[in-house]
């Protein structure tokens, strides 16, 4: 009697996981079907070009600069250790990091201010103002900055009038200004989304538990904005590192950044293997940096 009693439940237990696994498999298959268009798009426009870039990075350079898919070599990758490359990479990293920090500090204050407006209509209006620049082309806006920063531009005139600065066009500060201007919205939007979601009664609870206003911000508001900080930082850092238009238009010859350098390899210098190796390297570094950021972001902030 005891024997049958013991057996029954174990049989049922054995049957249940099988059912569950079946359901999971069906769920997975359905998920895959839903994603087919996305996979197809990614493969055609993302994976394939990347593979091509990778292949070309091992190609050789013909006499006229034509890339030849014959004498496989690693010359392109070897050139990555050039002092020139190192200088440019260092400069680009500095620009990208600085730009991310600037955007984060200014963007956080701004997003916080928008998110704490009492009326929903005020918040919507302010967000629309953030988005309005996107209504005109980025190139056009960058040229507008070029005019403002040029010898007879208003910003230069203001600087000369106050004696604080002169012509900034074709210098690193001009590139910074352009990048900050261009990428600030990408920081503000995710930060706003994160801050607006914060339950303010948590901050009140913090104040009630003897936290000063500053402490409550550091211990509660800031950690709870983490998703926005991570998303915003990645959205700004990644394109800043590969920025091309802004440094090309506002920066001078002395401020060549990675983006411009790579374009030169594919254009004037006609060195496709080297350009491909550079692109591949950036991609790998960026991927590692993003993973690292997510990891550390998960622990500290």
């Amino acid at each position: 009697m005891t024997l049958t009693d013991e057996r029954k439940p174990s049989e049922e237990e054995a049957a249940n996981p099988e059912l569950e696994r079946g359901a999971e498999r069906r769920e997975a298959w359905r998920g895959f079907l839903h994603a087919v268009p996305a996979y197809a798009y990614l493969i055609v426009f993302f994976v394939l070009p990347l593979v091509i870039v990778f292949v070309f990075s091992f190609a050789s350079r013909g006499r006229t600069g034509r890339p030849l898919l014959e004498d496989w070599n690693v010359d392109g990758w070897a050139r990555l250790t050039d002092p020139l490359v190192r200088t440019i990479v260092g400069r680009s990293l500095l620009v990208a990091v600085m730009n991310t920090v600037f955007c984060l500090v200014i963007g956080y204050a701004f997003a916080y201010w928008i998110a704490t407006r009492r009326k929903q209509s005020t918040r919507t209006l302010l967000l629309i103002l953030v988005l309005i620049p996107f209504w005109s082309n980025f190139l056009v806006r960058t040229y507008a900055w070029r005019m403002l920063l040029d010898s007879d531009g208003y910003i230069t005139q203001l600087g000369e009038f106050t004696g604080l600065w002169g012509r900034t066009l074709f210098t690193l500060p001009a590139v910074f200004l352009g990048l900050l201007y261009g990428y600030l919205p990408f920081m503000v939007l995710p930060l706003y989304a994160a801050i607006e979601r914060i339950d303010w009664s948590l901050v009140e609870a913090g104040r009630d538990l003897y936290a000063s206003g500053v402490k409550a911000f550091l211990r509660i508001t800031l950690p709870l904005s983490r998703p926005g900080i991570i998303a915003g930082s990645i959205l700004v850092f990644v394109p800043s590192l590969g920025a091309y238009v802004t440094p090309d238009i506002l920066g001078g010859a002395k401020t060549t950044l990675l983006g411009n350098f790579i374009v030169t390899q594919f254009g004037a210098a006609r060195n496709w293997p080297f350009g491909s190796a550079l692109s591949g390297a950036i991609l790998i570094v960026m991927l590692l940096a993003t993973i690292l950021y997510f990891r550390t972001g998960g622990r500290t902030v």
Binding site: D199, S201, L202, E204, A205, D208
Partner: peptide, 12 residues
């Protein structure tokens, strides 16, 4: 000190 209506526990 206060016990809030929705508890307001710190989720992080």
């Amino acid at each position: 000190n206060t016990v809030f209506q929705s508890y307001a526990l710190f989720p992080h």
